[in-house]
Simulated assay, not measured.
Amino acid sequence: MPDPDSKTTATSRPTRQRRGGRSEIVRGKVAESVLSFLREGRTDFGVAEVAERAGVHRATVYRWWPTRGDLLAEALTEHGGRLALPDTGSWRGDVSAACEAFAEFLTDPVELALTAALAAHTDAEADRAQFEYWAPIDDQLRQMVRRAIDRGEVRPTTDPRVASLLLIGPISTYALTFRAAPPPDMLAGIAEAITRAHAL
């Protein structure tokens, strides 16, 4: 999982263009085209390939997304928006729900391709795009921890970054190794360990 606090996000990533008056139909086609390459395990696609698969004029794609990094950022924004962690009202409930949500999310072919590329450090543009899009996902986890602190369920000294890494780390490792979600009993064990580790 990318570290949102890494300097890479602040110093290296390409600047995203504002959508403004872009056609949502074109944007959606292009984003889905990029995601389809990622589902195939490919992060080395070119702008021209994306244009052809999306059925969009190449000049349009180059104008709105001049680099592969821009295309990745657009597609991953679309992909990451599909993950929403529920507020169950309790620390135990939130952790359990988050484990289940991430087990499904991290075994999506898009995530598996990105995690493999990130682990191998063979695709700098994919790394940069993933660092950016992961930030709001990580923020959801940190908010979950802060809610629990505010409710008095979790120690005030708990570092949200550590708690989020403890949750995502084993699920991500299992997903990348076995190309599958951890079995329910393992997910329950991860959730129980995290709940107890930080509870008052």
Rank of each mutant, 00 (worst) to 15 (best):
D44T: 03
V145T: 13
Q130M: 13
P66G: 01
Q130L: 11
G69V: 00
R151N: 09
R19T: 15
L118E: 11
E104F: 15
L38T: 02
A51L: 00
R22A: 09
W64D: 09
Q143W: 14
R63T: 05
R68I: 02
R39T: 13
W64P: 03
A135V: 06
L35Q: 15
V30T: 06
I25P: 10
R128T: 11
S164N: 13
A48D: 13
A54F: 10
G152E: 12
A31L: 14
L72G: 01
G21T: 15
L112S: 01
R22E: 14
R142A: 03
R161H: 14
G169H: 12
H79M: 09
A75D: 02
A98M: 03
F45I: 01
L141R: 00
Y133R: 10
P182I: 03
L187E: 03
G28H: 15
G21P: 14
A73D: 09
V56K: 00
R18V: 13
R13G: 06
G93S: 00
I137D: 03
V110S: 06
T173Q: 13
S6Q: 10
V145Q: 03
L118A: 04
G169R: 14
I194M: 02
I137C: 13
M144H: 02
A116Q: 09
L176Q: 07
V61Q: 00
A148L: 14
E100P: 08
W65T: 00
A126M: 03
L200A: 09
T177H: 14
M1L: 15
L176D: 08
V162L: 05
W91E: 00
P183K: 08
A119V: 12
A54L: 05
A75L: 11
S36F: 07
L141Q: 11
R142V: 06
V110I: 13
L167W: 04
A84C: 07
T43R: 00
Y174T: 07
A84M: 11
A180S: 15
L72N: 02
D139F: 09
R196Q: 12
L71A: 08
G41Y: 05
L165E: 08
G55R: 05
A97W: 00
E32C: 15
H57N: 05
D185C: 07
P14N: 09
Q143P: 04
S33W: 05
D185A: 10
T158G: 01
W64R: 13
A191V: 03
L106P: 08
K29P: 05
A188G: 06
R196N: 12
I190F: 07
W134G: 12
Q130K: 14
A59Y: 13
E74V: 07
V145D: 06
S164K: 04
G89D: 09
H198I: 01
R82N: 15
L165A: 13
L141E: 14
I171A: 05
G189W: 12
T60R: 01
G28A: 10
D3K: 11
Q130F: 10
L38Q: 06
V162K: 13
D87W: 14
D159E: 00
R39D: 09
T43Y: 02
L85N: 04
R196C: 04
R142N: 11
P66R: 06
R161E: 12
P160F: 05
P136R: 07
T195R: 00
